[in-house]
């Protein structure tokens, strides 16, 4: 299987469902609780703690960081739990979602409209993914513990294009 190297600047509209990609760049962690806060803030017209425009969000909540390490084990969580929130975030600029498992039709429709892409990481490959994370910075909602928003820099993160910006899916 051919692997395409991608980063935050690449044209995601060229990616096709089924492409294996190797991602090097920046992504933000956010899962259930952070999504709820993002959407509540947007509904109130408040500014978000991250700039969503063109951003990548990774659905993950790592284990605690051990002394001397960058981050704990950090695999993807089930994306469908974010389905109720994802369209609102895409309308606000989110372009790349990374997680595991299927998405609902509302998410796919919003992806087509907003030219966004959904990538999957291997569920349960948390130690391997941890080894590809080169930097981690706390960003917001630290009271949420593992559900806090963190800025991750990754190198050669193995992902698969599950749903492309045209709505084609391999799931």
């Amino acid at each position: 299987m051919k692997t395409i190297d991608i980063n935050n600047e690449c044209d995601i509209e060229t990616l096709r469902a089924g492409d294996a990609v190797s991602f090097s760049g920046v992504m933000y962690t956010a899962r259930d609780a952070a999504h709820k806060r993002f959407v509540e803030a947007l509904e109130k017209g408040e500014k978000l703690p991250i700039d969503l425009n063109g951003s990548a969000i990774y659905y993950a909540g790592p284990t605690p960081t051990r002394e001397g390490e960058i981050i704990g084990s950090c695999g993807p969580t089930t994306s469908s739990r974010m389905d109720d929130y994802a369209p609102t975030l895409m309308d606000a600029g989110l372009r790349v979602m990374i997680g595991k498992g299927k998405r609902n039709s509302a998410v796919v429709e919003s992806m087509i409209k907003n030219k966004a892409v959904y990538l999957i990481a291997v569920g349960g490959a948390a130690a391997l993914i941890k080894s590809r994370i080169t930097a981690c910075e706390d960003v917001a909602y630290l009271d949420l513990g593992c559900e806090a928003v963190r800025k991750l820099t990754v190198r050669d993160l193995p992902l698969l294009v599950a749903i492309d910006s045209k709505g084609n899916s391999i799931l």
Binding site: G61, P62, T63, G72, S73, G124, A126, A127
Partner: peptide, 11 residues
Amino acid sequence: VAERTDSYPCQ
């Protein structure tokens, strides 16, 4: 990798 680095295989 988890075994070698004494890391949690899943978060």
